[in-house]
Design a protein around this nucleic acid. Sequence first.
DNA 1: AGATACCGGTATCAAATCCATACCGTGAGA
DNA 2: TCTCACGGTATGGATTTGATACCGGTATCT
Lengths: 125, 125
Amino acid sequence: MGKAYNVMAATCPSRTVLHRIGARWTVFVVNALADGPRRFTDLKAHIQGITPKVLTETLRSLEVDGLISRHEYAENPPRVEYALTPLGRSLLVPLRAVRLWAEQHVPDIEAARARHENQTYADTV
Amino acid sequence: MGKAYNVMAATCPSRTVLHRIGARWTVFVVNALADGPRRFTDLKAHIQGITPKVLTETLRSLEVDGLISRHEYAENPPRVEYALTPLGRSLLVPLRAVRLWAEQHVPDIEAARARHENQTYADTV
DNA sequence: AGATACCGGTATCAAATCCATACCGTGAGA
DNA sequence: TCTCACGGTATGGATTTGATACCGGTATCT
């Protein structure tokens, strides 16, 4: 059923999906929610460097796409929690693989960048 | 080994790696090179919607990071081929998982978006 | 010989996105 | 009353992305 879509086609809806996944902060927010619901300020502290505006936008987008859910508790003081939906949790699997790849290959990529700085040949295939 | 890095830390180098992976067109270019080397114009035709400028920038960035290699053949007419390096091929694995997830969950996400449309409409009524 | 087309890109400028900083309303605590 | 935390907005500048036109070299067609 998945093969009904081709990401290389400009008109394919999977394009917009991939675009959303690839958006600047999606990977971080989804990963930050991996261990359970979190509050706005908690997320902001956990994902270092994200600004409140961008965090708000990212959360809204993910909510629209059904990847996370927003729960507003009518307590005193009011509390807002964000959590992954089942769909969001399923995305966690491939995203975790990407994050692990990134963490594991930092030395390789830093070496490649250093090599490029030194103008060495690029033919290391 | 991989756990020496934490993507949530703003200063962590894995951040820049994840940023590169998540860049607008990286997934498409890497996937387009999955089946072997391709030429510039071929890539441009295959990845619908990418402009030459952006394709050039993406290829240069991926080359700096050691994910692809650029071969300029001194033939007549000159030919330029881009290919995945072993490092790039290793990235192919998690990226393919992401692409498959995207292709498989298009209906879910479209449903979520439609649901959201209806919700906001219902809120105004 | 002249016109045309392909390849691998640049140049230029407009549009979309991202980021930093400041601020707001509500409620709680001192 | 003053101040602080929470969950955000407002504003305005910086960065990235995109659309379009163009270029030099080579081959091909007429």
